[in-house]
Write a protein that binds this DNA or RNA. Structure first.
Lengths: 193, 193
DNA sequence: ACAACTCGTTCACTTAAGTTAAGAAATGCC
DNA sequence: GGCATTTCTTAACTTAAGTGAACGAGTTGT
């Protein structure tokens, strides 16, 4: 696990052994079972999540229905909105698979940032990268139909389609499970021809 | 104009007179006419835009059709993707109205950041704020129907509906102009009852 | 002033997504 | 193993969005 984390960090900054040990001493790693709920609506958590192995999802419950809006897999991190604005969470986060992740909170983070200014730099790089990606994703979503979105997903994240239940994928694509099922049948039909 | 800019900045950091003068000496302000194209697809610009007065929009041309994905009005800024990743732009940016904005680029920015580290701090705050907002907006978009999206817009940005042409609003809502027209008629019909 | 465009709306028709319900397949739990 | 639950698919029907075309109002340009 250490190696995965440090491998990821090394893409942004380089760490000395001392720094690595400082990080490890924080006891960040958590191993959680499929289905575990990491964050509930209404909860005021300060925890930032970073997935080392497995998959977590973010979802709302609207009119009693789960609406999944994002998945996070290996090397992807989620800073819940409630951490940023210090308000109760609007959404849930749970594990799609057995997952290993790091859990950090600003207190620990501030400590690290003070000790190692590099961290501040990495966080900014990460958040800029994320913002850019997010904007492109949003644009793509707006400019395509459900079917195109599914085909794009098939191209860009084929793993998600395999590892995530259909009904969760459906709301991620902005449609109902039945529509996804039908849409897939439609595509298969076309492929045959 | 100065006042608008400094008023905005003061929400994040406080500036001395010297710092204000340093900023003004950069000659950031631009006054552009409605319809002016500020960024073209394929272009490699380094300019970051911040709207002081007026409205600009970001749009793609896909299969010969304009797809508007974002509007930026007073006190909103756009750092085009091509600035971040130093590649040709995927989209266009043009003025919906006569607009006054600041145009900055990383060279100037770096100069400022070096001279006044505060700026770095403000930029990070801005980008974090934006990222959070963007995520919520994306979630809202995914979890609602075109009609709900229109009603939300009516709630949250009634000005946009007034100042922006319908066909641009339509793709912003992820639908065709005719559908927006129909959807609006439908809502009016309901209101009567 | 007139022609050429743009823009918004409407209509008829097509296509796809929402809804409700039912049943098959897979999964989880004694 | 067997029962219950969840997940996925299918189907029939409803509703809304896409498409192509037409029209009038407003704008632009000459």
């Amino acid at each position: 696990m250490k190696n995965i984390l440090f491998g990821f960090i090394s893409k942004y900054i380089s760490l000395t052994e001392d720094e690595k040990n400082a990080i490890l001493s924080l006891d960040l790693f958590r191993s959680v079972k499929k289905g575990t709920v990491l964050l509930k609506e209404g909860q005021k958590s300060q925890d930032e999540l970073f997935v080392l192995k497995g998959c977590i999802r973010k979802y709302y419950i609207i009119d009693g229905e789960e609406k999944t809006t994002a998945f996070f897999t290996e090397m992807e991190g989620l800073v819940p909105h409630c951490v940023t604005n210090n308000a109760p969470s609007e959404y849930f986060v749970s594990c799609v698979e057995d997952t290993i992740l790091t859990v950090t909170n600003p207190d620990m983070g501030a400590g690290l940032n003070v000790t190692f200014p590099k961290f501040e730099i990495m966080c900014r790089m990460l958040s800029e990268e994320l913002l850019a990606k997010q904007q492109i994703d949003f644009d793509e979503f707006k400019t395509s139909s459900p079917e195109q979105r599914y085909l794009n997903l098939l191209q860009n994240r084929p793993d998600l389609i395999q590892r995530v239940p259909q009904h969760q994928l459906a709301s991620f694509l902005g449609i109902k499970p039945q529509s996804l099922s039908r849409l897939r049948a439609r595509i298969l039909e076309k492929d045959k021809t």
